[in-house]
Design a protein around this nucleic acid. Structure first.
Lengths: 189, 189
DNA sequence: TGAAAACCTTGCCATAGCGCAACACTCTTA
DNA sequence: TAAGAGTGTTGCGCTATGGCAAGGTTTTCA
């Protein structure tokens, strides 16, 4: 159950089995059904999630009710609604299980106690934040300056898993286009 | 010279003058002219910058050569080309001084030594990353789902300094529209 | 301080992407 | 296994934004 998480930690920092065994029990297992919500807008996000199997989608809706997807967490990735998780304020986004998934969740309090007390976890959290921020920067530039077709090509090259595993509807909501447009773009490839 | 930086640190964590005096000298002062580049695409970003006076702009260009702005650092803000700064890889973005500015810069090595050895700095860096990431998330959602007019209104409400201090050309490059469109949108407000 | 450069605005038309409607296809799940 | 819900495709017209051109205004700096 904790294999993937241990591998993840090892890939980031030096950590041995004993150190890991101390903190692993703080991660509780959740099993989710397809399309199940782990968090809805307006709720407080109490957990940081690690995906063991399946996929989580992080999205919000604009005033026309259209969904916009920010991030897909595949196996071996962390994800949370950070603003809510940090500040204990109502979340502006949803977290939904795209398919039947197995999730490890650590509570806010346990997580930040670890971050403050355990240099290994501190470093991992720093890494996650740095990488997530850099990814966001690139995505901002992509949304600002590339055409929808460019963004689709970028996705094919760098995130092929998204294209192969997910529905056109959610892919479109990630690219920032309508499903109509995505369908048309695919004929231009 | 270090007043603003000290205030910044105090606003984030408990720090007294003695603690601050130890680390302050690691920040070297740079004075920049209007439109001077601190970093060009392809160069390695060696410093983390703190703005004392003036303003720095962080941007890149797409393949048509249009500029896209990600962030403006006003007095009391940090900014760097993070991917390059962390990984020592060539930067994909530029850092330019919008106007005559006074900057405090700390080198990569000094910075990460502080982050690893000094809990106060570690916490500040964590805060910066968290806030920057949250801001990026909101910006991604804004670019994906709101019209250009919505984004302009958002800017007026939450970042009025950008509208009042900067040229239309760079504001447009931040909103992800052309200067033509921005000019037209302003008549619709 | 005055010429040159940069910037802002606006008319006009071009284009990318939107969104309805209709239909085909494909997963559920009872 | 059949009905229904959800998903993908495509024709058509619409809207938001892009981009050239031309003119007026502001800024820069020698």
């Amino acid at each position: 159950m904790y294999d993937l998480l241990f591998k993840y930690f090892q890939s980031k920092v030096n950590i041995d089995q004993d150190q890991f065994d101390v903190l692993a029990p703080q991660f509780k297992r959740f099993d989710t059904k397809r399309n199940e919500f782990l968090l809805r807008r307006g709720e407080i996000c109490k957990y940081n999630y690690f995906v063991n199997e399946g996929c989580l989608r992080f999205f919000t809706t604009n005033k026309e009710g259209q969904q916009m997807t920010r991030y897909f967490a595949f196996p071996g990735k962390f994800g949370t609604s950070l603003a809510s998780f940090i500040e204990l304020e109502p979340s502006f986004e949803y977290i939904q299980s795209v398919e039947q998934s197995q999730i490890l969740a650590i509570s806010r309090q346990d997580f930040f106690e670890l971050v403050d007390s355990n240099p290994v976890i501190n470093k991992i959290y720093r890494d996650i934040l740095e990488m997530a921020y850099i990814t966001s920067q690139k995505r901002i530039y992509g949304l600002q300056g590339d055409t929808a077709l460019d963004r689709l090509k970028w996705l094919m090259e760098y995130q092929p898993k998204i294209l192969s595993k997910l529905s056109n509807k959610v892919i479109a909501s990630y690219l920032g286009v309508t499903p109509y447009t995505l369908s048309r773009l695919k004929t231009e490839l």
